[in-house]
């Protein structure tokens, strides 16, 4: 038992989701690599290549939904913790730090995979920023119920 509102399965789910977003960005980079060598293929998947960042951001919105339910579900837990000596600010801070650390680990892991595959990682930075923003936003909803 620790002071975090995240359980082991929550942590694993988060890492899985973060990695999923980064790998999806990698998938679109893979599509781009394939299409770069073929005008015909490019003519078919141009819409995916051109809007790949929008697609990845769209998919990553699920992470916000997931984080939202996580913090919503934690309402009673936050209340209990505050009653026995914790503070909301510290709970939020711990939540933010932990989520961002997990995000950083996922980013590093995916970066290694991307570099091994020879993919550029520019798109991963967009995903990183978006996911960090989701974490910050979800912390706003964290409170006692």
């Amino acid at each position: 038992m620790d002071r975090s509102i995240l359980r082991l399965n929550n942590r694993l789910e988060l890492v899985f989701l973060y990695l999923g977003c980064f790998l999806l960005a990698g998938f679109f980079v893979y599509l781009k690599h394939q299409a770069d060598d073929s005008e015909v293929l490019m003519s078919y998947i141009k819409f995916m290549i051109e809007k790949r960042r929008a697609f990845v951001l769209g998919f990553s919105a699920f992470v916000l939904v997931f984080l939202y339910q996580l913090v919503t579900k934690a309402g009673t837990e936050v209340r209990c913790r505050v009653l026995v000596g914790d503070t909301l600010r510290q709970i939020k801070l711990r939540y933010l730090v932990e989520c961002l650390i997990l995000l950083g680990i996922s980013f590093l892991l995916s970066t290694v995979v991307h570099l091994l595959l020879g993919f550029e990682i520019v798109d991963s930075f967009y995903v990183l920023l978006a996911l960090a923003a989701y974490v910050l936003l979800s912390a706003v909803f964290l409170g006692a119920r």
């Binding site: 038992m1 620790d2 002071r3 359980r7 837990e77 209990c80 913790r81 026995v84 000596g85 914790d86």
Partner: peptide, 14 residues
Amino acid sequence: SLSIADNIRLPLLY
């Protein structure tokens, strides 16, 4: 999500 024991021990954690 915590056991009854962990719930009771929660103040000790803080």
